[in-house]
Design a protein around this nucleic acid. Sequence first.
DNA 1: AAGAGTTCCAACCGCGGTGTG
DNA 2: CCACACCGCGGTTGGAACTCT
Length: 351
Amino acid sequence: MGRSPRCEKVGLKKGPWTPEEDHKLLAYIEQYGHGSWRALPAKAGLERCGKSCRLRWTNYLRPDIKRGKFSLQEEQTIIQLHALLGNRWSVIATHLPKRTDNEIKNHWNTHLKKRLTKMGIDPMTHKPKSHALSPSQLKDVANLSHMAQWEGARLEAEARLVRESKLQVSNPFQTQLGSSASAQFVYEATMTTTAPLLPPPIQPLCLDVLTAWQGSWLNAPKCNEFPATSVTLDSLTSTFNFSRKGEATGLSSNFPDEMEILQLQGMAYSTDIDDSLATGNENILLPNFMEAGLAEILLDNSSQLYPSITGGNYGNVAGSCYGDFEVEENKNYWNNILNLVNCWPSGLPLF
DNA sequence: AAGAGTTCCAACCGCGGTGTG
DNA sequence: CCACACCGCGGTTGGAACTCT
């Protein structure tokens, strides 16, 4: 059966979009919705193939897209979800409000992958490089990888449910909200606009695999033994101190965006942020992964904080034993992934 | 100032899944 | 069941922008 060529028709334009083309596409979709992408270019007066139009819309013109730098919170979420899901960018994008899968994929490939590599973590497996592990740890890692595969499959299935419920939202412009809307929002929108047939969003179970994973690290032999952790598994929030906007550990300068995300995700924080900033009341409850070491590790000045990572003399990377900093980083790294799941509020689905 | 090297990201390509007649 | 068309996804690329020497 041969697949027919798509964008190869003679006369169809390729390459960068002009403002005029953008305007045509935007105007058409706002008025009529995209409908069939195949038919859209002719109707909209564009000399492009439908596929090119779809890409331009979903990755650039959609009104709910946030552009610009990724916040630290977003980067953490990407890394944590990538550890569970791998390169399933569309699924990951459902957890990053206003970000497209293409943007996330680009950011991963150009920034995050390199930073993980520098940390001595394999960006594809999210495991420390194997030469640093003892045989018993390697065995644990193998077992837990198997469990993580199951967990990833479950999360992906839940993401599929969300996508399916989105498709049932009747208003075409609501469907254009696409990946940015939280599952709860989609569920509510669906319940108010279509027949009440959908089940409520699924509340995921605790991610036992990662608890086990962490347990394996904490029971590691002396050489790689982690110091007593300050982040307990059953502590869903922790006291987070900061002096003012952007100066806190783990918060980048676009602080309001991060709080917006936390609110979207239903994260608990006890004190009104603005009041705290104004009055100097600095104790605010935030999910504990916000204060963990990964935040600092991922900051661009990590080379000063962690000289061993970026070529300094600290630690013994070449041998079988990590330096204390790197051991701590690996522990925090997995704590963060675990916390992403454990911190998820009971009222919101993870996917 | 200029050339070389690097980074970044919008856009393209091709595959697989799914719907339809 | 088959053939085909459409859509969405992940991988890759080309060139603009930026940085370094």
